[in-house]
Amino acid sequence: MAMWLFLGSECLLFGGLISTYMLYRGRVTQGPRPSQVFDIPFTSVSSFVLLMSSLTMVLAVTSAQRKDNHRTKLWLMVTASLGATFVGGQVYEFTAFYNEGLGFTTNLFSSSFYTLTGFHGVHVTVGVIMLLSLRGIISKDKDTGDRPEVVELIGLYWHFVDIVWIIIFTLVYLIPA
């Protein structure tokens, strides 16, 4: 319950960041505009990776409910590596943008873009850390299938990060300013 409440609260956090971006994305007085830097095919792939990590998370949760420790650990690892791939892609993307002359302080678009996607990236990173720690904890467990609730809660967080990206991907990348 606390997790749902937290996620409800997070809706307002990301809502604020997205709104700021929407308001500012077209306001470019210097430096590149969004359409000049976005690499849609690349971002599509990383979006797909994140989406699929939601699937593997579901598989981890169902395995945990079946008390299948082995598969739970496996799917947690897969999810974590997909998440890490996504974060890696984001780091690559940021570097590429930066080399094209879009620094954090360049213009309103860049500040709000980096803040929004950066916040999302931090959430993914925290998620990856939680997944890895959870895997470690499950390995140490004496009994098998001991904590389906915990897997489920972290799953909820993970899916939430995914749905936020669903929105960011459409609003930020696909709809031109």
Partner: peptide, 14 residues
């Protein structure tokens, strides 16, 4: 209720 209240309020205010 908890989740959709948050979502709905976010949509409304923004």
């Amino acid at each position: 209720f908890l989740f959709y209240t948050g979502l709905g309020l976010a949509l409304f205010v923004y």
